[in-house]
Simulated assay, not measured.
Amino acid sequence: MSTLVFSTRALPARDQREAWCAWFDPVFGLDFSGEPLNSGFAAESIVWQAGGAAFSRVSAPRLRAVRKAVHIRRDPTDHWVIGLGVQTSRISLEGGRLVVPAGQPFILSLGEPSESEREADERLHLYLPRDRFASLAPELDRVRGRGIEGAPGRLLADYLRLLADAMPRLTEDERVRMPEAISAMVAACVAPTAARIADAAAQSDLTRLERVRQVIRRRLGSATLTPATLCREVGMSRSQLYRLLEGEGGVTHYIQRHRLRASYAALTDPRDDRPVAAIAEACGFHEPSTFSRTFRRAYGVSPSDARAAARAGSAPGPRLSPAMGAETRSLRACLQGL
């Protein structure tokens, strides 16, 4: 089982907290002190197993999670965890208290006691078993209990977000090959050397490419979306940007491809009743004739014909809807399977 989903959202509100506690027991204990006993706790955990590692995205209300000596005795898992939250995290460790700003990755070991307090948040967690990632042991143990700051921290945060975006679409074969790529990227961020940075170059490029893609999506309809704009917003030089997108056909082609894909998706969405010209402008094509010509060259039909074909019966592709197997009903079972 490589994709696991656990959600309390379909449960009665009175049962949600108990179900969420059961999912994390005995890896973590959850403390809801101060919260009304019958208040709901709508939360979801998605875990992807990837060739010996595990990656999770957790959306949950405010909580306090503890891993005390009693939890470690019951569950001696000592994986490293690289976390990233949208909100500030306050973590108490044996060596002191760690305050991690929003958007900064941090590294903990499940082999050590910890207490974490956070507001409602969406968090990413990368679980790295010691046996599978033994080559990283010295570096990860050196920085455990710390946040990763500066440029390495920003790069690692972007990489975790990239994994969250990519994991649902990866094939089983691609997931099996992930540990090598993860090792190279984590090593380059927590203990950067020239050799490790070179080993992680491909992963670094994927992370930078994701940043470029996010800027393009955010500013898709802007007439000022240019190579200069991208350089400024992603923080790289013109030569770096052109090298990064050389394999994608160049900067201008890459932007245009995203605009065409967005326009095609809108035109073939039966719920989108905007005029063709409005869709074109929203996707960055401000000249209708240019849009029509470019669209036909890419897809072999005019925008109007594409919309008509979709409305004549073309259905969207199936959505990924992973289900949790009956044999995996807790985070502990998932981590033990790594």
Rank of each mutant, 00 (worst) to 15 (best):
G317T: 14
E287C: 09
P76D: 05
P179S: 01
R208I: 06
A164M: 04
T77W: 01
H253W: 00
V215S: 01
D25R: 06
L206H: 07
S2N: 15
V186K: 03
G95C: 02
G85Y: 09
P138R: 06
V58W: 00
L63R: 15
A187K: 07
D25W: 08
V301E: 02
Q49C: 12
A308G: 10
F106N: 10
S302M: 06
H258E: 09
G145R: 09
P61S: 06
Q256E: 15
P316V: 08
A22K: 12
L320S: 05
L241T: 10
A10M: 09
P316N: 05
Q87N: 15
P322H: 08
L160N: 01
R97F: 09
R332N: 09
R132M: 04
A164F: 03
G249M: 07
T252S: 01
A184E: 11
A262W: 12
R132D: 08
F55Y: 08
S56W: 10
A333T: 14
S116R: 12
A194R: 13
R123W: 08
G147M: 08
A309L: 10
F133S: 04
V66W: 00
R154T: 09
S304M: 06
S2G: 15
V70L: 02
P138Y: 06
D141F: 06
I182E: 00
S2F: 14
P179I: 06
R271K: 11
R329M: 01
E119V: 09
S263I: 12
A187Y: 03
P129F: 05
D305T: 14
P36E: 04
